[in-house]
Design a protein around this nucleic acid. Structure first.
Lengths: 118, 118
DNA sequence: TTATTCCATTGACATTTATCTCTTTAATCG
DNA sequence: CGATTAAAGAGATAAATGTCAATGGAATAA
């Protein structure tokens, strides 16, 4: 488990050489790292990646029954992957009648995206 | 396992209502999804997130011996995390004398970053 | 040279967590 | 009711995470 980052005192070194250049403290705090890593982790599966890709590209909402035949996976498995994405806050769902529609949450990917491109 | 995406024929529906709006095919192909997901997966741990953050922020290279005390983890565990990042192509390392220096590979995060922000 | 110390990686292992399938449950309509 | 769609539960297999111990290499000391 990561903790908030503090530099411990250096160990002794062989006389001549300095060990390293001074370290840069991560400005990304533990909590932010955990949030961002959680999003990355949820995206860290090709199926979920493609699910999000479909949903993003669609702009609106997509029915689960349309997502399932896109993959060579059972409906419960797709449902499970969607739940992972839901738990990570990446997608949301709405039930209308018999069907459930999924969509990408607006700002879910923003923090990760910004961190990556800054 | 994901496969290249093809829409299967629709199942029959209850007469009245159409199931869904037409689906958008993912333009992200399976192979790209796998590459990008692999990068996301490697970033999907707070420790690795912070490791990459330190390395990115430093612009140059950082010695492992400086990275270890930033976390409440043993040195071999940090080494394992670094290996995950290395295997994902996100970081590289160079040994100079007694010490190993890590740095972020130039374009490693680009594909994911672009996908996220497009 | 040889031994010793130091830094990092690797291997083996236990524990936890993911992934996936097969039911089963829940809910919505005709 | 019966058909249909999605989610949830149980459980098997696979993978990730962390530790300690061992190995590999490079510099220093004797």
């Amino acid at each position: 488990m990561p903790i908030d980052l503090e530099l411990s005192p250096k160990q002794k070194r062989p006389a001549g050489e300095p060990c390293c250049e001074p370290v840069v403290y991560p400005e990304i705090a533990r909590e932010k790292a955990e949030r961002t890593a959680a999003v990355a982790k949820a995206l860290g599966d090709p199926v979920r990646m493609q699910l999000v890709d479909v949903l993003r590209r669609h702009a609106g909402e997509v029915c689960v029954c349309e997502l399932v035949p896109l993959f060579d996976l059972s409906q419960p498995t797709i449902s499970h992957h969607l739940k992972v994405l839901r738990d990570a806050g990446i997608v949301g769902s709405e039930r209308r009648g018999l069907w459930a529609y999924y969509y990408v949450e607006g700002n879910a990917l923003e923090e990760l995206s910004e961190w990556l491109s800054n």
